[in-house]
Simulated assay, not measured.
Amino acid sequence: MGYHQAGFDVTGVDIAPQPHYPFEFHQADAISFVRDHGHEYDLIHGSWPCERYARVTRWRGNPDDHPDLLAPGREAMQATGRPWVIENVPETASAGLLRPDYLLCGTQLGLQVRRHRVFETSWSGGGDLVAPCWHHRGLHPFDHKGERAYADAMGCTWMTNREARKAVPPAYSHWIATQYLNFTDAEAAA
């Protein structure tokens, strides 16, 4: 949604059905789709599942039960020759799996959600500064996860609560899209 709000035509790809997705959607393996069609897009954004890396999901079992999609996803996006973004949990940067070009939290972007995410980009960061996180008392990373309020707090009003748990809040992708557009404008002016 954030890319749409920034002026992009958006196409989504997921291996699972996404019945509430508001834009063009292809049910497919995202890495295969990028290999076959990535060159057709102006910008590619990969949000690979985080269960393998996130501390918060470790209680669910062995991280090795979840595929490592970061390296193959990056390789597929790089092969397209198109600009790209990879998003995931901060643990991926701590482990050296993602370069933390941007680190965002909902509180930096006016959301009442503490949800940190790292973004690696093909243009290697830079851009606008954002305010530091502000985790006030009573604001927890998973407040309202069992309620409709969580999806709404993230700005994912068209999603179910379950869908929102795996989503990137639109405020994040809008901010990233703006950084990309500012970068391309600066490149064109140079």
Rank of each mutant, 00 (worst) to 15 (best):
F8D: 00
W59V: 09
R162P: 01
I176D: 04
W134Q: 04
E91T: 09
H135I: 10
G96A: 06
A6D: 05
W134M: 00
P141D: 12
V130M: 10
D65P: 10
A167G: 03
A149C: 01
P67H: 09
G110Y: 01
D101E: 08
H26M: 07
G146S: 14
P63A: 07
R35F: 04
A149G: 02
H45T: 11
H135L: 08
H37A: 07
W48L: 13
V56Q: 14
E40I: 11
M154P: 00
R115I: 04
V168I: 13
R114C: 12
L97M: 13
A149E: 13
E75R: 10
E24C: 06
R52P: 07
R114V: 13
M154L: 11
P83C: 08
V89P: 02
D68S: 14
V34D: 02
D65K: 14
Q18K: 11
L43K: 01
A54I: 08
L70Y: 03
E91G: 07
H174S: 15
G155V: 01
A93R: 01
L97W: 09
H135W: 15
H174I: 11
L181S: 11
P67K: 12
M77L: 11
F33V: 08
H39G: 15
D143K: 03
R148C: 00
A6R: 07
L181W: 08
D65S: 15
I31E: 01
A54E: 04
G73P: 02
V118A: 05
F33M: 08
T178M: 13
G2E: 02
V10C: 08
A79C: 06
R165Y: 00
N88V: 03
Q112C: 13
D64T: 15
V56G: 12
G46I: 12
T121R: 03
G46C: 14
I15V: 15
D42P: 09
R74D: 06
H140T: 13
H135F: 11
W59C: 02
A189R: 15
W123A: 08
E187F: 14
Y172C: 07
G125S: 03
A164Q: 04
V118N: 05
D68Y: 13
G96C: 05
H39N: 15
W123M: 04
P19A: 03
L129V: 14
D128H: 10
D42Y: 08
I31M: 06
D143G: 06
M1Y: 09
H116N: 15
R52G: 05
A6K: 06
D143Y: 01
E187N: 12
A6N: 04
R60Y: 12
A177G: 11
P132E: 13
F8L: 00
V168R: 01
P72I: 10
N161S: 15
F119M: 02
F33P: 07
R117V: 07
F119C: 02
F8P: 03
D29L: 06
D29G: 10
D128P: 07
Q112N: 15
W48F: 15
D128R: 12
H20V: 05
G81L: 11
R114I: 11
A16T: 09
H4I: 00
V130A: 10
A76D: 00
P72H: 08
T178Y: 08
V130Q: 09
L98W: 04
H45M: 09
D14F: 06
K145G: 08
W158P: 00
P19K: 04
P170H: 07
A186D: 14
G2Y: 00
P19T: 01
P67M: 06
